[in-house]
Design a binder for these strands. Structure first.
Lengths: 168, 168
DNA sequence: CGCTTCCTTCAGAAATTTGTGAAGTTAAGG
DNA sequence: CCTTAACTTCACAAATTTCTGAAGGAAGCG
């Protein structure tokens, strides 16, 4: 298949794009994300269509198809991007849904739940009446509080978002 | 200095303590924390006094003083533990303030701010009117919303905490 | 069907991270 | 002051992670 300005995004200043991609990716890495997923994600975020093919990602980031494949697998497990097949082609497109990805961020719920269960076991095994047990119980209570708050907060965001961006 | 059951925590089932420490640390690692800081932190959380000396940490976790030193430096930079000197001794104690450490968790503010500024630059350089620019602007708006919400939420938590644990 | 394009998997090389031992620094206690 | 206990720093070795090239499928298209 032939490449066009539309599919590669080459019409935009590649310098500026790359600067954003590497800078934002670096911040994501700082926060604990692996380098390659971070770069791939940043590239998608900065693309005009909000989606790129594997080949485009490889070319823009100067990495092998294997690296793209691994990064994309990770990102879709985290629900930060979705994969879609281009109809009538073997190419796959990876897409970031602008509203979906940061919802996934707060969906660290899985992690929160695991923290909670580790703490809960700890309280049980060390004794709820020991100083350590009480400390852990308080921490547990905080996370349980968090669970509820995060859900309510996202609901408020959706309202706020609708007001601000809804009418496009 | 001599070691006592009080300072080493050996009166408690070391098996149970270790099981919690390694289990909880593993979850922290999963969430992006480095292994050694995670283990040190979990050990402090599970200690009855809420604090341990360098030597105690080294012995319990079977690691060198150097490893403890590095982990503790990281943890105190993150405001997850504080260091205090034992009066009349060269020993240092590392302490977890039960209420302080998870406040530090939400104090990923530093990271949030950096994300915001990276996004802001991106919007500027790619153009606020481009599709990519609009996507990045929406993400930026989300993080700005988050900033405010997190602060308000922690305030609600403090009230809730006082009601639940205040009267001890 | 077979050719071709594209994605994935896998073994291994390269780079990075992590933890150690040893030397260095600081400060208490005689 | 000198000694010594305790933490820190540093160079390096070990372990782990990350990325690549090559081989192995799957699926469109003739």
């Amino acid at each position: 298949m032939r490449e066009t300005a539309e599919t590669t995004g080459r019409d935009r200043d590649p310098e500026a794009v790359s600067k954003f991609v590497e800078g934002f990716a670096a911040q994501l890495v700082e926060a604990g994300m692996q380098r390659m997923p971070a770069r791939v994600f940043a590239a998608l975020l900065a693309s005009d269509p909000g989606s790129l093919t594997s080949a485009e990602l490889g070319e823009q980031l100067q990495v092998s198809p294997a690296a793209v494949s691994g990064a994309v697998r990770y990102l879709s497990q985290q629900h930060m991007v979705s994969r879609e097949r281009e109809p009538g082609s073997r190419r796959e497109r990876y897409r970031v849904h602008s509203d979906q990805w940061y919802e996934a961020l707060t969906n660290r719920e899985t992690i929160l739940k695991r923290w909670e269960s580790a703490l809960s076991e700890g309280v049980a095994s060390l004794g709820a009446e020991t100083p350590a047990g009480r400390r852990m119980a308080e921490t547990l209570a905080f996370f349980e509080f968090l669970d509820g708050e995060l859900a309510a907060m996202m609901e408020r965001w959706r309202v706020h978002r609708e007001k601000t961006f809804g009418h496009r």
